[in-house]
Design a protein around this nucleic acid. Structure first.
Lengths: 182, 182
DNA sequence: AATAAAGTACCGAACGATCGGTTCATTTTC
DNA sequence: GAAAATGAACCGATCGTTCGGTACTTTATT
């Protein structure tokens, strides 16, 4: 099996258990691969696996959000589509965000720069569409930040209180919150 | 030294490294205590330490937020004070939230119920003060949730992009956002 | 077309290091 | 002197990692 086969499995493991919690034993069991085989696909070991997962997430964001936000259609419909993709990514609020998870423990020191770059790109893409909509640039940037805050926060709180409707409500009202004139 | 002496150290270790990342070696080094001494104060081992930290955080929340929100003064000033305490707790956005951290890895399975209870109590305390202010009960509950979402989300995003002004801005505007009539 | 060489995918076994946890003799404190 | 607190050595288990090697497919050489 090619290396790409195991990326989704690694992705779900790392965002569930974090860098320190996702042990090679767990990874071996989940992928069905022996530890030695894992090192065939990812010579750099666990760090290599996380880096591959992050790269995969970066590509996903580019294709499903950034390109989408820069495409044609009304700002409302584009933001609406983004929210749909986001809801898929986090499985309606049932799955944590790898970007948030990787800010804890050993993972933070190793991948902070990459996480930062991805989050910043995301924020700027949202800000861009708001500027295009006619919103002041400084305000657009703040709202882009607020969008990420709402996404990450609703994921955290939804998991904490075991209620994904919280995440879904937040995502559903996100487009109008971002586009509101006030 | 009494056991309480080490709670703040454990607190800062666990919210920085998470359950799996905060190893006994790190804890021993940070507290200056040998493992035997740690097990004297916390016979239940690491789980006992985390439970004590969570209990400490629960007490902190009770004294600095819940009691405050239920005290006298205008809703604005009480919410304002809560935001000040919150800013202290998270050191102006420089420190993560233990409640968010403990939702990852091994810690999640062990402490999810306790985390859930603390977060729910927090949400309800905010909702109560909004009801007292004259806001509809259902809306007040949503805004209580939104408050926690804003706090947790701004912490995550601030750490991600290395900019605590994001957290500070969110906290600063929280009272008027919660009390807005609309 | 037959054969050699190279590459891909995988695994069992073991490595040294560190994990969380324990034991126990000794020191400190009152 | 009794009780609390501690340092040091140690436990089995697990950590991430490496090694040597097998099976199979693809490419290159003749």
């Amino acid at each position: 099996m090619p290396k790409e086969t195991y990326i989704p499995i690694l992705f779900s493991l790392f965002r569930r258990y974090g860098y320190d919690g996702a042990t090679l034993s767990k990874i071996s069991a989940a992928t069905g691969l022996g530890k030695a085989s894992l090192y065939h696909h990812f010579p750099g070991g666990k760090d290599d696996m996380v880096a591959s997962v992050l790269e995969h997430a970066d590509n996903w964001l580019q294709e499903n959000v950034l390109d989408l936000l820069a495409s044609e259609g009304s700002p409302e419909s584009r933001l609406q589509k983004m929210c749909d993709r986001i809801s898929d990514l986090y499985e309606c609020g049932n799955q944590p965000c790898i970007l948030a998870i990787l800010q804890t423990g050993t993972g933070r020191d190793l991948f902070h720069d990459k996480v930062k770059a991805v989050v910043e790109a995301w924020i700027e893409a949202i800000a861009d569409i708001l500027v295009e909509f006619g919103i002041d640039k400084a305000l657009a940037l703040k709202r882009g930040q607020d969008a990420l805050i709402a996404i990450q926060g609703s994921l955290i709180v939804s998991h904490a209180v075991d209620d994904t409707s919280l995440f879904q409500r937040t995502i559903q009202q996100l487009p109008q919150v971002l586009l509101r004139s006030e």
